[in-house]
Amino acid sequence: MVFPQKVIKSGVPAPRADLRRVSAWATLALVAVSFVVPANFVTEQPGPTFNTIGDFNEKQLIEIEDAETYPVSGALDMTTVSVAGGPNSTVGALNVLSAWLSDSGSVLPSDLMYAPTVTNEQVSQRNSAEMTNSQEVAQAAALTYLGEDFTEHLTVSGVAEGGPSEGLIEEQDVILRVDGANLDGFESLTEAINKPQGAAVTVTVRRDGAERDFTITPIYNEENDSYLLGLYLARSFDFPLTVNYGLEEVGGPSAGLMFALGIIDELTEGEMTGGEHFAGTGTIDTDGAVGGIGGIAQKMRGASEAGATVFLAPAENCDEVVGRVPAGLSVVKVETLTDAVEAVEQIGKGSDPATFPTCS
């Protein structure tokens, strides 16, 4: 999750350079230069936290309509990274040096994080879109966990040039079925495409109110070890209830897990946290799978400074967690939303966080 310092982001890759071994002379030289030379770097520092079951600016952060809700207690904090610098902007070299020397900061050349042609406005738009999507998917994940029905629509927003669907599928087509089987969401589409292991599939779409079938041979993507149709899809949902989020100027996809937990807590009788102060991060998918994020060292530090005692960390980020956990903070490793709910409930009832899986 990202917060403009500048930018506040929930998930940014954060390789870290460490200057603590730099000689005193080199450090003095950097300090001297820092007063006169602007730096084309991006710095990342711990950002603010937001309690998803609490209030923000005198408004409930998660407000649910058209469903019965229950009292909550404690905290389920989403965590952020405060980012300075980026496209079309510079950050003072003294600030770069400060972040570089900080135990909780990181510094990267701007060109490694952003394409040369990207603008700050485009970055902001992308972060905002990722946040909106993460909120919708978090609601879907929470309802899936609670056994509530909803409908997901997959609309084509773009067709990859040279891909297997070019000349067949068009923008605004709605994907309905694969090989005659109805789809109930993005995960079922992925499963249907991968099941034939590269063989051609029949894709049924709705276009201009009529259904059309196309035979398409997916291509293999080594990076993801999966087969692809070469389509860009926009996901939309029809939910039986409305969730309003009272949070602005925060972008990125990595608050999904904490949003889903907040929704589940408000829709479930009993106080899930038991009054304890939890924090965490992670993307979420409609089936409850928790994905990795960036900036986890900064997020753990921000969580600790905000008073959290337990931090929920995606299993994918464990290699970045080890050796960087602030004193007094217990880290629980989670792979699914179910893992996270069970950890919060049991710790809220008095279980020792050390009895749950952690990063090691």
Rank of each mutant, 00 (worst) to 15 (best):
I264H: 05
G280V: 02
V205D: 00
A297L: 12
I216V: 13
D213R: 10
T204P: 02
V250G: 05
V290K: 03
E211H: 10
A297Q: 15
A297R: 14
V250S: 01
D213H: 07
I284W: 07
D287S: 15
F239L: 13
T204V: 10
G292K: 08
G291T: 02
M258F: 04
F278L: 06
G282H: 10
A260T: 08
S236V: 04
L233Y: 13
E266F: 01
T204H: 07
I216D: 09
S226R: 10
F278Q: 01
G256L: 05
H277C: 00
F259V: 12
A255K: 01
V243S: 13
G295A: 05
S226L: 08
E248M: 09
G280S: 03
R206M: 10
A297N: 14
Y232N: 13
I296K: 00
A255V: 04
D213V: 11
V290M: 00
I219P: 03
F214P: 10
G262Q: 12
G291M: 05
G280T: 02
L247R: 02
E211M: 04
A260E: 02
L261N: 07
G291F: 10
D208C: 01
T268P: 04
S236P: 02
N224S: 11
D265G: 12
E222H: 11
P240N: 10
E249V: 11
G209I: 06
A279K: 01
G262T: 07
E266S: 14
D285N: 15
G275E: 12
I284Q: 05
G295R: 11
G288N: 14
A279Q: 01
D225I: 02
G270H: 11
D225M: 04
I284K: 01
L261P: 00
V290E: 01
R207W: 08
E222M: 05
F239G: 08
S226H: 01
R207H: 11
L267N: 02
T286G: 15
G292Q: 06
E276D: 10
A210M: 07
L257N: 12
T286N: 15
D287M: 09
T217D: 06
L261I: 00
V205T: 00
G295E: 09
G256Q: 01
G246F: 07
D285W: 03
V290R: 00
T273P: 15
E276S: 09
L241W: 02
L229K: 13
E222L: 12
T273F: 08
G209V: 10
L267E: 06
P253C: 05
E276H: 09
V250M: 10
R206E: 15
I263H: 00
E271F: 08
I296V: 12
P253H: 03
A255P: 02
R206P: 03
I284C: 03
N244P: 04
E222T: 14
R207L: 07
F239K: 03
T215H: 01
V205I: 13
N244K: 14
I296S: 06
S226K: 11
Y227A: 04
T215I: 10
I293Q: 09
V290D: 00
D285G: 07
E269W: 12
G252M: 04
I264R: 04
A234Q: 15
T242E: 15
E222C: 06
N244I: 01
F239H: 08
T217P: 07
Y245R: 01
E271Q: 15
G288K: 07
G292N: 08
G294R: 03
D213L: 11
L241D: 04
